[in-house]
Design a protein around this nucleic acid. Sequence first.
DNA 1: GCGGGAATTATGCAACCGTATAATCCAACT
DNA 2: AGTTGGATTATACGGTTGCATAATTCCCGC
Lengths: 229, 229
Amino acid sequence: MPAADQPQAPPERRPYIRDTEENRREALIEAMQDLVAEGGPQAATVRAIAARAGVTPGLIRHYFGSKDELVRASYTALMDGMTDHGAAALAQAGEDPAERLAVFVASSLRPPVLDPRAAGLWAGYLHRVQGDPALLSQHETSYLRYRDRLQDLIEALSRDRTPGQSRREAIACNAVIDGLWLEGSVLGERFAPGELVRIGLRSVGAIIGVDLMQYGTAVPELGPEGKAP
Amino acid sequence: MPAADQPQAPPERRPYIRDTEENRREALIEAMQDLVAEGGPQAATVRAIAARAGVTPGLIRHYFGSKDELVRASYTALMDGMTDHGAAALAQAGEDPAERLAVFVASSLRPPVLDPRAAGLWAGYLHRVQGDPALLSQHETSYLRYRDRLQDLIEALSRDRTPGQSRREAIACNAVIDGLWLEGSVLGERFAPGELVRIGLRSVGAIIGVDLMQYGTAVPELGPEGKAP
DNA sequence: GCGGGAATTATGCAACCGTATAATCCAACT
DNA sequence: AGTTGGATTATACGGTTGCATAATTCCCGC
């Protein structure tokens, strides 16, 4: 073989493309979330993240300082996204307190909140949440915000109750929703499409002593069979 | 400085210690679980696992063939341990169906089942569960076994119900327990010691329409107020 | 038009990962 | 007592990781 001396095209430098800071941060966060959701934390390497975001790894350091910082930002984005979605669903609900509660519960038990990707992503971050005080307080804030909203909706039902009761009920309702969300996300195909929403409404209703099933039709696409596209 | 020519003790080989296959497998699995629980999946490297188990990394390959195989065995051990614990608690319960259900529920919501370590461990495996068909079927089996036991306990209450009702109730009760277990494990210090057990009993009772709170004293260490240090 | 400087890319590095393979040890069998 | 073979340890290797630094590119105020 002759020596490696052929013209050998220069390794063609990646084109320089400039973009706004916001776009770059979003792209990196989304890329990281995709990778963690698909292949677990181990798949989210700086090179893979940068490749999916369409940039070179150096930008992670440039915009976030370190990979750990990107992880924190990514977790915050995940939590905010989920709570925001619940609030949005609530915004376009009626006046009836029971109906509002039903809509809120149902929105947490169907896509895009109920999603294998989200569950895997959440689990992928959990150990960091436990170890990092900043992330732990972040989790606590998000959790309490969700639970407090739930408690407000419950208290709006204006039934007679003791002070501690609504707290216990909110904790319990939050737990049912979390549990259904989790198992539904992991074993999604084991449940019929609208089944988890119905079970959630029935259980929450049983815990607080109000019938929420009558609002089952108020939640979209849950008519006779509920086969979403 | 003189040349590096001092007697320089030979790098002292690790003493050869022989042990049974069972002990070695257990030690490796336990070491892996400790590491995943403490520092997430990324902390469980073959070298760290072997070091904690008091052996050299080669033994992992010798006994499990590969690290992935050790992960599978470790996950199986975790799941079996949790379900076994529930069964054990049930074994030393009375005859009253409601009491048996109460004991079963309560045992899942207090240590050692309710444990930050277990939750972190479980989360650390989740993404592998979603990706690995063998682990997914393993998870499904464990989940259904637990849920079916719950359903049996519910049906033993001999109330009148429709066929699908007990399934829905079992799914719902399982979800409450899972949700309480999860949040209690992550935010353990946010809840009073016996609080989660009480909420669990009250919620499960509400869902199936039976009062389980009267058995609150049947579960250990839950007397008048239950304020632990 | 033309420097200055931030944004982006490219390169290099030390550490670590999982695994394959070789070397060593010791108990049990003959 | 000698030998054989599984259990255990040690070493080596290719690949990957996160990060630091150097080299480019091009927008923007002058």
